[in-house]
Every structure is written in C-alpha cells, then in structure tokens.
Write a protein that binds this DNA or RNA. Structure first.
Length: 398
DNA sequence: TCTGGGGTCCTAGGACCC
DNA sequence: TCTGGGGTCCTAGGACCC
C-alpha cells in the first residue's frame, strides 16, 4: 500500500488552526501554503481544492497564483507542526504493519504481505483510510497493488479521500491511458524528448522498444520502460537508513557580491550542517559548496577532506576554500548552499594518518551544541555574524 | 513581488595506477 | 617508433523526488 496525505501542508495547517479556535476551515476556501515573497522564497507549497480549480499549481510563484485567483489566501508553513502530524499518521499505521517506509513527511509505503489474515487488502485499505479521517482529522489517498511503483501510481489517481487499486490486469485500462508525465520518475526534461519520439502516454512508453530507450537514456531508459509496464521489485525499506548527505542552503533576500558577506553566510550554513551532523553522530569526508547566480545558474565545488570530521572549523576552512575557487567567476549570488557528503558513523571511523585529533575544537563544538539544545538554535551565535543572522534567520525547527 | 529547500542517484570526463 | 587497455577514485553537473 502507498498512503499519501491529501494536500498535506494545507490540511495540517487547516486542522491546526481549527484546533486553535479559528472559525474557517482553509480547506474550503481558495488557499495555499507558501513561502515568504519578501525573502524571495514565495512559491506555492500546497493548495486547497478551490485554489486548484483556479489553476494554481504547486511550485509556481505566489504572485502568479494570485493572478489566477484574486481572493487567494496565503499561509506560511510550520515544519515542526507538520512533523507532529506525520508522526501521528505513522503511529496509527504501525497498528497494521511494522514494515513501513516513511518515504517523505506525508507519504508511506506499507508492506502488507504478512498481515492479511482473512480480510482482503482492499478492506484493510478502506479501514485505514476511515480511521485516519475519523481519528486524525485529515484525509489520505491509498494505493493498493502488488509492488511499490503501482501502489504509488494508484494513490495518485482521483483525489481526495480515495482508495484505488492497480493490479496487474488493471494496468492497461487504468495506467496506460495516462499522459507520460504522470509516470513516476519522468520529469520536465525527459518528457519533451519522449514526445519527439511520438511517445505521449504511459501505454506508448510500455509498448516502445526497450533497447532503443536504453540506447537513448541509459539506465533511466530501462527504468522508465519497466515502470510503464508495472515492473518493480524494490523492497519496502522499513528500517531507518543513515543519510548519505546533509546540506543546508539559503536563498538570500537580495543578491550578494561581497565575498566577505558570502563567507559569513557560508559560516552560518556550516554551523547548521555540522550541528546536524554531530546530532546524528556522523562524520563527513567531503565538503560541497553551491552557488546560484541571479540568472539561476548553479555552480558547485566539492573536495575530499584528509580526515573524517564533524567539527565546525575544518569544514568551514574547506568550504571557504571552495567558495574562493568559485568566486573567480563572480556574479551576483542569489543562493548559497553547504553540503557534507561521504558520511560515516562516528563509531566506525577508520584510524587515519591525519586523524581529527583536535580535542579542543571538538570540545568547543560540544559546548555550543549543548547551549543550542538547551536554549534554542538561535540563542547563541558569533559576534561577527550578527549582521548575517539578520539576513539569514535559521529556522528553529531544523 | 519571479522561480524553496531537503534529499538520492546517475553520467561524463580527468587524474592516476599498472 | 607516435600513443593500449584495464581499472579506481574524484569532481561537476544534472535529473528527479516530495
């Protein structure tokens, strides 16, 4: 089964407001959850049905959505609150199976193979759907199928509050008629290329020459042909996996060219990233810095460290080096990102010739972390960074 | 008042080794 | 006498997901 919360951010905001005494249910009016236009992060993250009817789409700029829908109401998201609703959903689902993959904040895959007893899968799906609505106050779509791909495709059929099946024999009638963009893992870059090959529906793709697709698209070609034919043998990954990378980035309220400013922003991001790294008890082996220009061109540089570390100082030094490498071709910068890669568990660390032996630095990080833990992330900061902190307020929830 | 932020995976090309 | 072929590791960029 694939379970997908209908308009998750909007629904959760709606029920949270109702709980706090708000009279109108924002699910019943033209409304969206969006970023902050003044901070240049004004895009649509979720929309109500009424907003959708106006033609509002997820990901578009809010000003554009407002043009389509003049009486649109805009609300900001609250990640911490969303996580609480996500946890409630997960807890309820655990009553049905312990093999649950939390695919995202609002999506789960359930492996029901060993939990059917006498009921059919479909009855269970209906029961789950009903209980979520009654006990948690929001609706979901449930997709029922014999693999993850088909379950996910099924949960995406008509919304909201629906249970759909997509069994093997239903593939031609329920899936093949859909436009090819609807297929999982086909995005805006690949679809025009398929159109040029006269492939417009998922059915066209399913019947296309597999080898030709592989020749044109490599591994991705094989995958899309298999998906179009409903082939997928991936497991439900119900055990929490160690992250492969940790990164934070900010779109700046205004373009920045001053390298000193950029350095300070990088420092803020490094502190954020390494804080998360230490909380997860991981060490990083690679540092990556990303810049986006005001023309929306992205650049990134990365480099391996001589030793695995989670310490602010060496990671900041590496990040500054990378920033300066890229600064040569400087243009006004819109976004700055810092990411660490090649993560390993702290207790699995190999002894290196250049081991991270700076006890003093590690101790300092620990003290700062504890203060942040106790008094809030933004309660302690560097004196030299106060100005940047005003530009780049780090969200407490992260 | 144009276009978020968090991720994963893949590919191509270059350096280097034998 | 004028340039092989196997491999690994690293980096930059891009596609896709929610």
């Amino acid at each position: 089964m694939h379970i997908d919360v209908n308009n998750a951010f909007l629904s959760w905001t709606a029920i949270d407001k109702l709980k706090n005494g708000e009279k109108v249910d924002i699910r019943t009016i033209p409304a969206i959850i969006g970023g902050d236009e003044a901070k240049r992060s004004g895009i649509v993250l979720a929309k109500s049905m009424k907003a959708k009817e106006c033609g509002v789409v997820t990901g578009e700029p809010i000003y554009q959505a407002r043009k389509k829908c003049p009486n649109l109401q805009v609300f900001h998201g609250d990640y911490k609150m969303y996580m609480q609703y996500s946890d409630k959903l997960y807890t309820l689902l655990l009553e049905y199976t312990d093999k649950i993959e939390r695919y995202s904040i609002d999506e789960c895959f359930l492996d029901m193979t060993n939990f059917l007893q006498n009921e059919t899968l479909l009855d269970k799906a209906k029961e789950i759907s009903m209980r979520i609505k009654n006990e948690l106050g929001f609706t979901v779509n449930v997709g029922v199928a014999h693999n993850k791909l088909l379950a996910k495709m099924a949960s995406d059929f008509t919304k909201p509050d629906k249970v759909h099946t997509l069994y093997k024999e239903e593939i031609p009638t329920k899936m093949w008629k859909l436009p090819v963009i609807e297929l999982f893992m086909l995005g805006r870059k690949t679809v025009p290329k398929l159109y040029n090959m006269h492939i417009t529906t998922i059915g066209d793709l399913a019947k296309a020459d597999k080898n030709l697709l592989i020749k044109k698209f490599g591994k991705h070609g094989k995958l899309m042909w298999e998906y179009a034919n409903g082939i997928d043998d991936s497991e439900v990954h119900y055990q929490k996996e160690q992250p492969k990378c940790i990164g934070n980035s900010v779109t700046l309220p205004m373009d920045v060219q001053d390298i000193r400013k950029l350095e300070e922003i990088v420092l803020t991001l490094v502190e954020q990233v390494t804080y998360r790294l230490r909380k997860e008890e991981l060490l990083a082996q690679v540092v990556n810095v990303q810049l986006r220009t005001k023309e929306f061109k992205d650049f990134s540089h990365q480099q391996k460290l001589d030793f695995a570390t989670s310490s602010t100082k060496p990671i900041y030094e590496q990040a500054t080096k990378l920033l300066h490498e890229m600064y040569k071709t400087i243009e006004p910068i819109r976004l700055v990102g810092v990411r660490v890669d090649g993560l390993i568990a702290k207790n699995e660390v190999q002894l290196s010739l250049f081991a991270d032996t700076n006890e003093k630095q590690n101790k300092l990080d620990e003290v700062v972390d504890n203060l942040k833990e106790k008094y809030g992330y933004n309660m302690i900061t560097r004196a030299g960074k106060l100005e940047v902190d005003n530009i780049v307020k780090i969200r407490e929830s992260k």
